[in-house]
Simulated assay, not measured.
Amino acid sequence: MARGRYDWVPDQHGAWAMLTVPFLAGTFLSPRPGWAHAALLAAWLLGYAAAFHAQQWLRLHARALRSARRHGRPALVLGAACAAFGLPLAAAHPWLVPAACAAAPFVAVNTLYAWRGRERALVNGLAAVVPACAVLPVAAGLGGLGPGGSWRAAVACLLYFAGTVPYVKTMIRERRSRAYRRGSVAYHAVALAAATALSPWLAAPFTAYLARAAVLPGRGLRPAVVGAVEIGCSAALLGTLLAVF
Rank of each mutant, 00 (worst) to 15 (best):
P88F: 06
W95I: 08
T111D: 02
L78I: 02
G117D: 13
F106K: 03
A92R: 15
N110G: 10
G79P: 07
V109E: 03
G72H: 06
G117I: 15
V107T: 06
F85V: 01
A81E: 04
P98S: 08
A102N: 08
L76D: 01
L76W: 12
V97G: 08
V77C: 06
N110P: 00
R118M: 13
P74K: 12
L76N: 00
H93K: 10
A91M: 14
N110K: 04
A75V: 08
A91L: 15
F85E: 02
L76M: 14
C101I: 14
T111V: 07
A103K: 09
Y113M: 07
A121M: 06
L89W: 01
A91P: 05
R116D: 07
A75H: 06
A81K: 02
G86M: 07
A104E: 07
G72P: 00
V123A: 15
V97R: 09
V109S: 04
A81M: 12
R118G: 01
R116T: 04
P105Y: 11
C82Y: 00
A121K: 07
A90E: 03
G117R: 15
V77G: 00
R116I: 09
R118I: 02
H93D: 09
Y113G: 00
L112K: 05
A90T: 06
R116M: 13
V77E: 02
L122V: 06
F85S: 04
W115D: 09
A103Q: 01
A90P: 03
P88M: 10
A90C: 14
A103H: 03
R73H: 09
V123R: 13
A90S: 10
V97S: 10
F85D: 00
A104I: 11
L96H: 04
V109Y: 01
H93R: 14
A99F: 09
H93S: 08
R120M: 03
A121E: 14
Y113K: 03
